[in-house]
Simulated scan of single mutants.
Amino acid sequence: MERSRIVVAGASGVIGGALVRSLVADGHEVVRLVRRDPRGADEVRWDPESGRVAASSLAGCDAVVNLAGAGIGDHRWTEAYKARILGSRVGGTTALAEALAALEPAVRPRIFLNGSAIGYYGDTGARSVDESAPAGEGFLPSVCVAWEAAAAPAREAGVRTVFARTGLVVSRAGGAWGRLFPLFRAGLGGRLGDGSQYWSFVALHDEVAALRHLLDREDLSGAFNLTAPHPVTNREVTTAMGRVLRRPTPFPVPAPVLRAVLGDLAADVLGSARVLPARLQESGFRFAFPDIDGAIRAAM
């Protein structure tokens, strides 16, 4: 992509922050959508949960990237927090998609790159799935289906719309791995449940590179799995973390304990998602860290 003006929602998150740094380093102009009062000309206020964003803030931009949403693992899944997980994604996506559709074609961004997640597929057990698989059943699949459907106004207006179905991002800065690194460094890490569940991971470096790839390629639209090509079980993750960090991994956490502590969130932790990046690889994308050991080392 030539030097562009790109709007990013969710720029304060792990992925959004890394993407913004990458774009700015390459000379792109980034406008951040924020939920507080703007602190500079490169920030615009919006309210994703109530669906308010000024269409004029998107006019003349080349791309809109939406990575905003309440953290999946930040809180116990009460009914209120599940409503927030859903509302923050659907409300924000709807607001942006409708704002894009309202703009005149001459000033309308060409690309709407919207976040999604491999939670779309639900628990796949040991069965491998790619983008051709249908949505699964349960809370997270229903969130992802509604999240992606909310982008319809932009797509119907002719904006190239892409969904980044992201896996578990290997990063010390947040998410599942943000919690794992301190535990394993302290020698307190261990498998979760029986460890047979698949974790479809992606190095943060590859996540950002894939997002940039999807932005650059004008011929790509629809859903793409942003996961490394070699999913591993939680038991294999535990072994790799111990190997790379050179720490013992003696403390497995039994499934009943996880359910007692995490409530409904435990189903996501103990669930298995063996997800492959078929469309991403078919488009020519190459992973810098396709294997778990490399992804962990890249995050250190």
Rank of each mutant, 00 (worst) to 15 (best):
Arg32Thr: 06
Ala80Ile: 12
Gly92Cys: 14
Asp62His: 05
Ala59Phe: 09
Gly73Glu: 03
Thr78His: 04
Val31Asn: 01
Gly91Ser: 10
Ala95Pro: 09
Gly73Phe: 04
Pro38Phe: 07
Gly73Trp: 00
Gly69Ile: 09
Gly17Asn: 10
Val90Trp: 07
Arg45Met: 13
His28Ile: 00
Arg39Cys: 03
Asp74Thr: 00
Thr93Lys: 02
Trp77Met: 11
Glu79Met: 10
Ser50Phe: 10
Gly87Leu: 08
Asn66His: 14
Ala59Asp: 10
Ala95Met: 12
Leu33Gly: 05
Ile15Cys: 11
Arg52Phe: 12
His75Ile: 02
His28Met: 01
Ser50Asn: 12
Glu29Asn: 07
Pro48Tyr: 15
Glu43Tyr: 00
Glu29Met: 10
Arg84Thr: 15
Leu23Lys: 01
Glu49Thr: 14
Val65His: 13
Asp62Gln: 07
Leu19Gln: 13
Arg89Met: 09
Gly71Trp: 00
Glu29Gly: 11
Val31Glu: 04
Ala80Phe: 07
Ala68Gln: 07
Ala18Glu: 06
Asp42Thr: 02
Ser57Gly: 07
Arg36Asn: 02
Gly40Arg: 07
Cys61Asp: 04
Leu58Asn: 07
Cys61Val: 06
Arg84Trp: 02
Asp47Ile: 03
Arg35Ile: 00
Asp26His: 11
Gly91Arg: 11
Val64Gly: 01
Ser50Leu: 15
Gly51Tyr: 11
Asp62Phe: 00
Val44Arg: 15
Ile72Met: 14
Gly87Tyr: 01
Asp37Gln: 12
Glu49Ala: 13
Thr93Leu: 05
Gly92Asn: 11
Arg45Ala: 13
Glu49Lys: 04
Gly16Asn: 08
Leu67Val: 05
Asp26Val: 01
Ala70Leu: 06
Gly87Glu: 11
Ser88Glu: 04
Gly91His: 10
Trp46Phe: 12
Asp42Phe: 00
Tyr81His: 10
Asp47Phe: 08
Ala18Ile: 04
Ala55Lys: 15
Val65Phe: 08
Val14Lys: 09
Trp77Leu: 08
Ser56Glu: 15
Cys61His: 07
Thr93Ala: 10
Asn66Tyr: 10
Asp42Asn: 03
Glu49Asp: 15
Gly91Glu: 13
Glu79Phe: 06
Val44Ile: 13
Arg76Phe: 01
Ile85Tyr: 00
Tyr81Met: 09
Ser22Met: 02
Arg35Phe: 02
Gly17Cys: 10
Arg45Asp: 01
Arg52Thr: 12
His75Ala: 14
Val20Thr: 12
Lys82Trp: 00
Arg35Met: 02
Ile15His: 06
Ser22Phe: 09
Ala95Glu: 11
Gly17Ala: 09
Thr78Asn: 12
Gly60Cys: 08
Asn66Leu: 08
Arg39Ser: 09
Leu86Glu: 04
Ser56Ile: 07
Thr94Glu: 11
Gly92Trp: 06
Trp77Val: 05
Ala54His: 13
Asp62Lys: 06
His28Leu: 04
Val14His: 08
Val30Leu: 13
Ala70Cys: 11
Thr78Tyr: 05
Val64Gln: 01
Trp77Phe: 09
Val65Leu: 14
Asp37Trp: 00
His28Asp: 02
Ala63Asn: 03
Val34Gly: 02
Gly69Lys: 10
Lys82Gly: 05
Val53Leu: 15
